[in-house]
Amino acid sequence: MITEEDVERISWLARIEIDSSKSKEYAEQLNSILDYFQQLEELDTSDIEPTYHVDDLVNVLRSDDIKPSFTQEEALENCENKKDGYFKVPGIM
């Protein structure tokens, strides 16, 4: 059961600001989604290996060889806020 507090905590973890008057509504919606998925619990999966990847591949590896990197200009090309070759974000601590 997702509570209103859970909704607020999840939004904090995801850094998404929500209107607290909507917490109840979101909790109900999330619960109905989880209820729907609950149907999967009816299947017996006790003898089945967990699926970590949908492909049957393993060991896709590369050798330790250097490939060209971006230039600093390329790296910062799509960034609005930059300073002295760095990405700049609001102060965080």
């Binding site: 330790d64 250097i66 490939k67 990197s69 971006f70 790296a75 070759g85 990405f87």
Partner: peptide, 28 residues
């Protein structure tokens, strides 16, 4: 001591380089 990063071919020798010069789409 590796020549490249964990998941991309960017060089690990960045210690005395200017910022954001050892980056690529993967590590960005």
């Amino acid at each position: 001591r590796l020549k490249t990063k964990m998941f991309c071919g960017c060089s690990t020798q960045y210690h005395s380089s200017p910022p954001n010069t050892h980056v690529c789409p993967v590590c960005l």
